[in-house]
Design a protein around this nucleic acid. Structure first.
Lengths: 235, 235
DNA sequence: AGTTAAGGTCAATGGTGTTGGCATAAGACC
DNA sequence: GGTCTTATGCCAACACCATTGACCTTAACT
């Protein structure tokens, strides 16, 4: 590793780039998020990001350990946005529902970034804060430690998993997405009823429901099961 | 489009490559899957695939519309493998559990491919067959059409979503994955108990559970809720 | 045997992440 | 203010990547 990455808080000199920009980790991450949103995830490259910042691409390696490190930083930013302004009410089921929808929503606001980061553990401060909050809600609700951890795991992974899945279509170009959706009408709705009786019988319901996220339903199912387990163990 | 892709069934001439291989869509997809498994996430590229096949990279464009088309074909192959040899028992909950674990497992066997394909609707034959089977199980169990579609949607999306999420770490290089896992020990387990009481209290349970998939738990929760709804509507 | 075009190859284009070496100015110290 | 150190930006280069257009060979049909 020829170039060592200096952590943001240890930086002292702020030398502007040739084009006058003063770089910072924050500025780079925000610019990257904007680029990803506007030009798609394939639109993010060291060269283009450098150009957008008015800096040489190689300068980024002074701030992140390659593109992968930048990706992790973007993930951390998304988690931070999900948590910003959130406060628990004390009703555990309401709190978990609201938090889950917030996380899901924050990722979907940046679908391309969501695809890149949803499956990565960053171990950075804001991600840790989210984990602490969720475990706190569960343990505060009366779940034993083992149950709390089990439910926490299913909850956070399910939220991120659906975020990534639902982000998929949104990350496609408008035409590609339209053609994916049209496939439900054109392919599935026209299957012969004798070979595919179940799809044929439910074709209308299917094409109405598939373009929407199944996350709220799955989340509610998870919360429902958790509540039952709490009631059973308490009784 | 300078080169038109000829669908597999319309191919007539089978001209061997310079190195003697006789290509086919099937051979290419299988070779691609093997490469991804053996050489990890970065292992699949047109050049390397061409080399492995004993063909020029550009030849692939006679069979697929770019790497994206190849990706979709791989996704279809994965679904096919999940279904291969599967037969329903008639016990709907067992059938859905087994099928879900099969799909999840088939994708995880090829993490890189899973990441790329889990959120894509291919509309190809084997994907349709899977959908038909799931809807059939649910309707056969006695769910009304609307419930069947709702549960089907949550079920299939949950399965694919977790497949994609769980594939993330597996698709990383060995070192990157190890460092992600180590982060649970090094970062989370050492947080100060006063600032992070809930993580501190459950650190042991967390690091034991997090490296494993939450899919089985989440799946069981979904099936549990579905079964309750069936009982309620029947009563 | 002659014709056609499918299906192979070659060479080139313009992209990518990443690195080592170098230059320069920011900040520390006297 | 002058001097020194080094953090931080820049440049050039490397080794990859997907994709394409032109070309050539030969399988298959008539």
């Amino acid at each position: 590793m020829a170039k060592d990455v200096v952590p943001e808080e240890a930086r002292r000199r702020r030398r502007p780039t040739r084009q006058g920009t003063v770089l910072s980790e924050r500025l780079i991450v925000e610019t990257a998020l904007r680029m990803v949103r506007e030009h798609g995830s394939a639109g993010l490259s060291a060269r283009r990001l450098g150009a957008a910042l008015g800096a040489d691409p190689s300068t980024l390696y002074r701030y992140f350990e390659g593109m992968d490190g930048l990706t992790l930083a973007i993930g951390e930013e998304l988690i931070g946005r999900a948590l910003a302004g959130w406060a628990p009410t004390g009703r555990w089921r309401d709190d978990l529902r609201a938090l889950g929808l917030r996380i899901h929503g924050a990722y979907l606001a940046h679908p391309q970034a969501a695809l890149l980061t949803a499956s990565r553990v960053t171990g950075r401060p804001r991600e840790i804060a989210a984990d602490e909050a969720i475990l706190g809600i569960l343990r505060g609700a009366g779940f034993g430690d083992e149950d709390a951890v089990r439910i926490y795991h299913a909850y956070i992974d399910q939220s991120l998993a659906f975020a990534a899945l639902d982000a998929g279509p949104l990350a496609l170009t408008a035409e590609a997405r339209a053609s994916d959706e049209a496939r439900w009408e054109s392919t599935y709705a026209r299957l012969p009823a004798d070979a595919y009786p179940n799809i044929a019988a439910t074709a209308g319901l299917l094409s109405a429901r598939m373009p929407h996220s199944a996350y709220p339903v799955a989340l509610e199912m998870l919360l429902e099961t958790a509540e039952r387990q709490l009631a059973d163990s308490g009784a």
